[in-house]
Design a binder for these strands. Structure first.
Lengths: 356, 356
DNA sequence: AAGAATAATGACAGCGCTACCATAAAGCCC
DNA sequence: GGGCTTTATGGTAGCGCTGTCATTATTCTT
């Protein structure tokens, strides 16, 4: 139907106004084309498109018919330029390699799904310099809001975040001074709680099997919190092993094997996240080590897969979906940055599980 | 340093030209500001920014100094409007809930990291209507290229893809007629290969534990391929169980339990993906069923986690990273859509594993 | 040395849309 | 009924950038 109408429209010699300077020689319809077909001014058609201002029902219907007939798609570049603000929400995350950040993303989606906002996603691989680069390239599109992970950024990135005329949510972490809004949990506290929990369970010979991303600030904060808790109890880490690169189940498995080879006296090993802890459990299964009785295993995140294990993983639940949703909701509350900064603690839960 | 210079600049009364119509009352520097400070015309400054056309070294240096001093960020909305094309690459994927699509994304990133392109990511939750909506909202930004998953789209979406003046890559699947480029593998063949492999291993009583996303075309194609292979061997599926909703390890575990309760005679169960197959293995561990000897388990994707298990999962490796990288590379080869469609088969490998 | 090619720069218009202000018509108040 | 608000619509002037074409300086030919 649409195609047919378009055909007649052109066949009747009513073809859309040619673009003037020739380099846009397509027949992509513009708002002017819609207005002409609907018999209104451009600005009225624009109001219908944006559902803004008072429009007579009959006019609205005519414009909407014209839009459908032409297959008109608004040019957001033009709209953004004219109104000095876009409907984009820039989302800059460290990684998409495990479910954690996709969960945050789903939360964001949920919050903005009924609004005009569109998320634009960038991935930094935990590199602050990459974060800065991506951030600047996103700022070139004049986003209405920015969501970034964590409170640590390059000086330049921080400056742009502070000066920009957009809302900013820093998610996951609340240990620090946010630019505008911070939504997340204290990873130091989570590490501390891990330590206290395991001590109360009777574990004494603590090992840590981590990765070597120094820029994974939150894993570092949990590690420090854990050490603090041990120290308060007069204990300390007996051993730790760090594997270069990122985190994965395979690396967790290999790390635990190496760690135990050198330190068979360990009675519990903490991993920076569930993915690696799972690898630890797989190693124990393979090596015939009774998990919990002989060796406790503790993770972080509370992923579904850890809870689907024959023995549910002992870990800490981070509320990732809630963090994403809350951050986006807060950003939508007001277009202008308020005087006061907001810090929202979404907390965490210890999942006792059966592995520690 | 930058901030300091800016301060002096203003203190000396050289403050940037006020915006005329008042609604953009910020001091966000524009190309005109850069040009003024560098003592050139706007268009020359523009050429420096875009690294385009012949520029004298001295001029380039002056302009770059001005850019740094002002903290100038190009307004891509204006650039995109003026040149009728953006540097955006729209990426529309069904899900980010497992590592599969993030792997594709990493491949895309790898291919475009040295170019001016920026990916814009949308998630459809396997809903073609959502896909259409996201696609249209992305087209409003005049992307230079679009990457979508699969070859099935709503009629409207397909029409826009065909008519648009941008390159299109349809990834994951090659069983069908692409708009422009298809990069992926035949999921029907993968399912077929699964069936033949398991038959050759001596399995005869086949079960299938799946989910109920009818719109997961690729899982459906694998299912059909599997059934075809069984039929060719004079066999058929003894039983299948489908759980409503998406796929997860937990669901895989529950599905297998239900399936076995009703059909204890099964000697092998195929899952639509590794996540669910993992759940199947966890059920076996829990229920004390010897995997492979008593019950074969077969997945799809070849995720790391399945290979880190005490007994590596038998599955099919899909080349997700390669698919993403190849698709993006192909898109970069030419800005205009060629006459002929391209289909690139990235193939697959059977990972024999120890579970079937 | 005259002409041709190349390098370097700029003037100008316009991309498609929306903020601002103006206008006209209709309803409302006492 | 005269002023007032409210509803509905339009004219105009940009938003900040880049395509096109023109111009001038410089280098290269033969």
């Amino acid at each position: 139907m649409v195609a047919l109408s378009l055909f007649f429209f052109k066949a009747l010699g009513l073809s859309m106004q040619r673009k003037r300077n020739g380099y846009n020689d397509t027949d992509v319809p513009t708002l002017a084309d819609v207005a002409r077909l609907a018999g209104t001014s451009e600005i009225t058609a624009s109001r219908v498109v944006r559902n803004q201002g008072p429009i007579a029902d009959a006019t609205r219907a005519r414009v909407q018919r014209a839009i459908a007939e032409l297959g008109y798609i608004p040019n957001r570049a033009a709209g953004s330029l004219a109104s000095a603000a876009s409907t984009l929400m820039a989302v800059v995350l460290p990684s998409l390699s495990n479910i954690v950040f996709p969960d945050v993303l789903r939360g964001i989606h949920t919050a903005i799904t009924e609004t005009a906002f569109q998320p634009v996603i960038g991935v930094t691989d935990y590199d602050p310099v990459v974060e800065e680069r991506i951030l600047l390239s996103f700022l070139a599109w004049k986003p209405a809001a920015v969501i970034v992970a964590g409170l640590h950024h390059t000086a330049t990135a921080r400056r742009y975040l502070e000066r920009g005329r957009f809302r900013v949510a820093e998610v996951m972490d609340i240990d620090g001074d946010p630019v505008d809004i911070a939504v997340g949990m204290s990873h130091h506290e989570a590490g501390h709680a891990t330590g206290r929990h395991l001590i109360s369970r009777g574990y004494r010979n603590f090992g840590y099997a981590g990765h070597m991303i120094e820029t994974d600030d939150r894993a570092s904060a949990r590690y420090n919190g854990l050490r603090a808790a041990l120290q308060e109890a007069g204990l300390s880490l007996v051993a730790e092993h760090r594997t270069p690169g990122g985190s994965s189940t395979k690396i967790g498995r290999d790390s635990l094997e190496i760690l135990l080879a050198q330190h068979p006296e360990l009675d519990v090993v903490i991993f920076p996240n569930d993915d690696m802890a799972l690898g630890g459990i797989f190693h124990c299964m393979h090596a015939g080590i009774p998990v919990k009785e002989k060796l406790g295993i503790f993770g972080f995140n509370g992923l579904d897969i850890g809870q689907a294990l024959p023995m549910p993983l002992s870990t800490i639940l981070s509320r990732r979906f809630l963090i994403g949703r809350t951050a986006a909701e807060k950003l939508l509350e007001s277009r202008v940055r308020p005087e006061d900064k907001t810090i929202i603690n979404t907390g965490f839960d210890i999942i006792e599980g059966e592995t520690a």
